[in-house]
Simulated assay, not measured.
Amino acid sequence: MVFKKIYILLLLIGLTSCRYSFTGASVPPHLKTIAITTFIDRSGSGEPDLSNKFTNQLIQKFINDNTLQVTDKSNSDCLIEGTITSLSDAPAVISGNETITTQRITINVRVIYKDLVKRQTIFERDFSNYTDYKIDASNIINLRKTAIDETIDKITEDILLGVVSNW
């Protein structure tokens, strides 16, 4: 009977200690604010406004997450700087008659995350993601734009997770 009570107690302790949360998991406690500089577009893709779209999406991710307050560089505890290194639009699926049916947008970025309080780089990392889209000659421009937007959304989410949960 005593053994059974100890077993149940240990089981309850084990279950309550297994909670898992990403919120603020790896953000050092002295970091409260973040600045995000405009990402430099070195992709050579010629995609209009890619730099601003990317930067604005990343800022919005941090605002929505609310782990770090977004502010300007002069008032921030940490900083994200980045470069869009490539944007490719390549065939992803080719049908039996050698017709391209699906294209893949891939975006690669280089991100530097700095602690401005301790004056050190927390990480310098490459992020990459992609989105596939079907080929439809009547709507190719909109489908490509949507794929770019979805890819930006995925990468900015990855960057956010890299900062707030050391993913």
Rank of each mutant, 00 (worst) to 15 (best):
T99M: 10
K53F: 03
D65H: 10
Q57I: 01
R104G: 02
I112F: 02
D126F: 14
D89S: 08
N97F: 02
I36S: 03
N129Y: 03
I112S: 12
I34H: 02
F123H: 13
I112N: 05
D65I: 05
E98N: 15
S43R: 02
I40N: 10
Q60D: 10
V117T: 14
Y130I: 01
S76E: 00
V93E: 07
S95M: 09
V111G: 09
L79S: 07
I40R: 14
T67F: 01
Q57R: 14
F39D: 08
K118A: 15
T67Y: 02
N108L: 06
F62T: 12
S74L: 08
S51P: 00
K134T: 15
G46D: 02
I40W: 04
F39C: 07
Y130F: 15
N97Q: 10
G44Y: 14
L68M: 10
S74Y: 08
T102Y: 03
A92C: 07
R110A: 11
Y130M: 04
D89G: 00
I122N: 07
F62A: 10
Q120P: 00
R119E: 15
S43M: 04
I94M: 03
V117Q: 13
T71C: 04
I105F: 06
P48Y: 08
Y133A: 12
D89F: 08
I112H: 06
D41Q: 09
F123S: 09
T37M: 06
T55M: 05
Y130G: 07
Y133V: 13
S51G: 07
I63D: 12
T55V: 04
S76T: 09
E47A: 04
A35C: 03
K118H: 11
I135F: 12
T101M: 13
N52P: 04
A35K: 06
R119C: 00
Y113C: 06
Q103P: 00
D72P: 00
N56D: 15
R119V: 03
S51D: 13
E124H: 14
E98H: 15
D136Q: 14
T38M: 13
K61L: 02
D136P: 02
A137S: 14
F127M: 04
T71V: 15
Q103T: 01
E47W: 06
P91Q: 12
R42W: 06
N97I: 00
L58G: 04
T102S: 13
D132M: 04
T102K: 11
N75Y: 10
K73T: 10
T102W: 03
Y130H: 13
S74C: 02
T33V: 00
K73G: 00
T131M: 03
L87G: 01
V111C: 06
